[in-house]
C-alpha cells in the first residue's frame, strides 16, 4: 500500500514539475505581450493556451542537425544534463503538508533526507556543467564564448546563493527543508521573523537566483546581439527544446526553493497546518503554488522591464559588492 502511494506521489511530482513548463512559456509570452502593449498568442486554443504544446510538436518534427566538428559525446550529454538536473532538484522540495493516514504519515515530498539542503546545493552546482559542456562541445566560437561566460557567471552567483543558504541554516539550525517549514510555522516566516537580515538575504538570494537561471537582466550567456544564441547556438530540434524546458524547470524549482526558505512554503497561518487531512494537503499545495507564481511573475516582470547588464558590470556586482556583503552579513548574524 505504502509503495503504491509513493509511486503515485513520484508520478504526481514529475507531472507537476513538467506541467508547469508549458504554463510558464504561455505566461511569459502573455506577460511580455501585456507589458509591451501587444496581444500575445491567441490563435491556438482558448487564450492561446495550447501554443506551448504546438511549439513542442513543431520542435519534435524539426530536423536535428549535429555539426560535423562537434564533440559528439558531450554534445549529446549537455542538453540531457540541462534538463535532468533541475528535475532532480525538485525531488528535495516539499510541495505540500504531511497527510496523516491511519498508520502512516504520507509526506508530499519526493524524498526527505535529513540533509536535503546539502543535496539541493550539490545538484544545483551541476547546472554549470550543462552550459559549459554544451558551449564547448559545439565547436563554435559563439557557443564557446556563451558557455564560458555562463560558467563564470553561474559560479560567481552560486557563492551568493550558498551564502543565503548559510544564513537560513544559521537562523533555523536545520538542514532539512521540511523541518525548515515546520519551524517557520511555529515561529513565523523567515522574512518577517528576522526582519532586517531576512529581507536583505531574500533580495540577495533573488538576485543570485536570477543570475543562476540566466534570466534578464543577467541573460548574458545568450545575449543575442553579440553571441547569436550563446551556448545553444548549434542545438536544434528536441535538444534545443531540452535546454529551453530545463531553463523553465530551473526557474520553477528556484521559486519553490525561495518560497520554502523565506515565505513559509505551504504554510499559511490559520488556513494550512504542517500536517493534517487530505483537504489540508490540497490547500497547502494551492498556497505554495500561489507563492511560486507570484515569484515567477516578478521574474517575468523584471525580465521585460530591465535592460541587460554589461559583462564587466555583472562580474563586478557579484565579486565587489554582493559577495563581501554576504560574508559580512553572515558574520554579523553569527555574532548576534
Amino acid at each position: 500500500m505504502n509503495i503504491v502511494l509513493e509511486l503515485v506521489k513520484v508520478l504526481f511530482a514529475f507531472v507537476l514539475v513538467m506541467g508547469i513548463v508549458p504554463l510558464l512559456i504561455w505566461l511569459e509570452r502573455k506577460i511580455s505581450a501585456w507589458i509591451q502593449g501587444r496581444v500575445g498568442p491567441n490563435r491556438v486554443g482558448p487564450f492561446g493556451l495550447l501554443q506551448p504544446l504546438a511549439d513542442v510538436v513543431k520542435l519534435l518534427f524539426k530536423e536535428d542537425i549535429v555539426p560535423t566538428n562537434a564533440d559528439k559525446g558531450m554534445y549529446f550529454f549537455a542538453p540531457l544534463l540541462a534538463m535532468v538536473a533541475p528535475v532532480i532538484l525538485f525531488a528535495f522540495i516539499p510541495f505540500g503538508p504531511d497527510i496523516v493516514l491511519a498508520d502512516y504519515t504520507f509526506k508530499l515530498q519526493v524524498c526527505d533526507f535529513g540533509v536535503s539542503i546539502l543535496f539541493f546545493m550539490a545538484v544545483l552546482s551541476t547546472a554549470v556543467f550543462a552550459v559549459a559542456f554544451g558551449g564547448w562541445a559545439s565547436n563554435n566560437k559563439y557557443s564557446l564564448l556563451g558557455g564560458i561566460r555562463a560558467a563564470s557567471q553561474l559560479v560567481s552567483y552560486e557563492l551568493i546563493l550558498s551564502g543565503s543558504f548559510l544564513y537560513i541554516l544559521l537562523k533555523w539550525n536545520t538542514l532539512s527543508f521540511r523541518e525548515l517549514i515546520e519551524k517557520q510555522a511555529a515561529y513565523g516566516w523567515t522574512i518577517v521573523s528576522d526582519f532586517p537580515f531576512s529581507l536583505l538575504f531574500f533580495i540577495l538570494f533573488f538576485i543570485a537566483a536570477l543570475a543562476e537561471n540566466k534570466r534578464a537582466p543577467f541573460d548574458l550567456p545568450e545575449a543575442e546581439p553579440e553571441l547569436v544564441g550563446g551556448y545553444h547556438t548549434e542545438y536544434s530540434s528536441m535538444k534545443f527544446a531540452m535546454f529551453f524546458m530545463g531553463e523553465y524547470i530551473a526557474i520553477t524549482v528556484m521559486c519553490f526553493c525561495m518560497s520554502v526558505m523565506f515565505l513559509g512554503g505551504y504554510h499559511f497561518p490559520g488556513v494550512v497546518d504542517v500536517s493534517g487531512n487530505f483537504l489540508n494537503a490540497l490547500l497547502g499545495l494551492a498556497v505554495i503554488l500561489a507563492k511560486v507564481f507570484i515569484l515567477i511573475f516578478i521574474y517575468m516582470w523584471i525580465r521585460w522591464t530591465l535592460p541587460r547588464f554589461r559583462y564587466d558590470i555583472l562580474m563586478r556586482l557579484s565579486w565587489h559588492y554582493l559577495l563581501p556583503l554576504t560574508v559580512i552579513l553572515i558574520l554579523v548574524k553569527a555574532l548576534i
Binding site: 513520484v10 513538467m18 535532468v84 524524498c111
Partner: peptide, 13 residues
C-alpha cells in the same frame, strides 16, 4: 523513491 524519480525523469526524456 529518489532513484525511481530519476529513472522516470530519464525515461521520459
Amino acid at each position: 523513491v529518489l532513484l525511481l524519480y530519476i529513472v522516470i525523469a530519464c525515461g521520459f526524456l
